[in-house]
Design a protein around this nucleic acid. Structure first.
Lengths: 154, 154
DNA sequence: GCGAATTCTGACGTTCGCGTTAACGTGCGT
DNA sequence: ACGCACGTTAACGCGAACGTCAGAATTCGC
């Protein structure tokens, strides 16, 4: 058998790996951002690699892009659709229904892309403005330097 | 005299123009994000065009980039330094002090740029992932379409 | 100069995203 | 079988960023 890196992580390990607190992990679960992880007999949560990846994803969406947990949930749910359908690709029948779900998931994803594009545009112009500002700072500092040098020269 | 578009806006107008609520305007003022606007005799706030622009700026920094008001205040203050120094460029003396302020403002601005760059990178990779996902949705939908067509053909 | 519309200042309420504490149950090495 | 680290739920707390009255003052149109 291949040495699988490790299949289960208790909440402590999961917390350490993701940089999220245990409270946060439980909170995300409570909010439906994570499927309830499998538990061991006594009720201890066991996180899979997938769970950790999902958590990383959530973390980026929040910390980097500033989405609300509600937004993120919607996004992840849209994503879920694809996986679900993939899983039961062959066993189910109602193709029209699945196609409909797919279309709505696609729609949500598209909106996300557009939102990101919009943000990136704004960020780019803002970045330019900041760069200009730096240039002006430098010009001013340069002046100061010259003046100081002149004083020294007298 | 040139017809100046209009010099004063009461809080209602300002609110409408910026899309921020009156409460929010007062709150931002309270938090030091806006200099206290000039008031009319009775105490009614009068916002200038500049104020509105500043508000737009704040709005973007918050809604689009997800900065906290505290962060934004720091940024705007750094910006203020430049204007202040520009204003009293000739009348003051302590050049070393001004240069120091300039350097720190420059530093803050640089950090902002780096932060934006970092965010943009992440956003770009995320965007790519989403685009891939769209492609997969389309592929699946295509399959459905073909299957449906096949059924019709039978 | 009067009434309606607008604004003012508190002050308390709310939602989000967790932090923190309490009291109690589990897993595991020895 | 015991101790101890680790985990569990439940509940309250908290700072940020406003929302939402209440009650009084101000401005404006007519």
């Amino acid at each position: 058998m291949g040495r699988e890196p490790r299949e289960f992580f208790q909440i402590g390990d999961a917390s350490e790996r993701t940089g999220l607190t245990q409270r946060t992990l439980r909170y995300y679960e409570e909010k439906g951002l994570l499927r309830t992880p499998t538990r061991m007999e006594g009720g201890f949560r066991l996180y899979s690699e997938e769970d950790l990846q999902r958590l990383e994803r959530i973390k980026e969406l929040r910390e980097l892009l500033g989405f609300s947990l509600a937004d993120i949930k919607e996004m992840l749910d849209a994503e879920e659709v694809r996986l679900q359908i993939k899983a039961e690709w062959r066993k189910d029948a109602d193709a029209a229904d699945k196609a409909q779900k797919l279309r709505s998931a696609r729609e949500i994803t598209l909106q996300q892309i557009q939102l990101i594009d919009h943000k990136m545009e704004k960020m780019a112009t803002m970045r330019d403005q900041l760069a200009e500002r730096i240039a002006r700072y430098d010009a001013n500092l340069q002046q100061y330097a010259e003046e100081t040098a002149a004083e020294h020269a007298t």
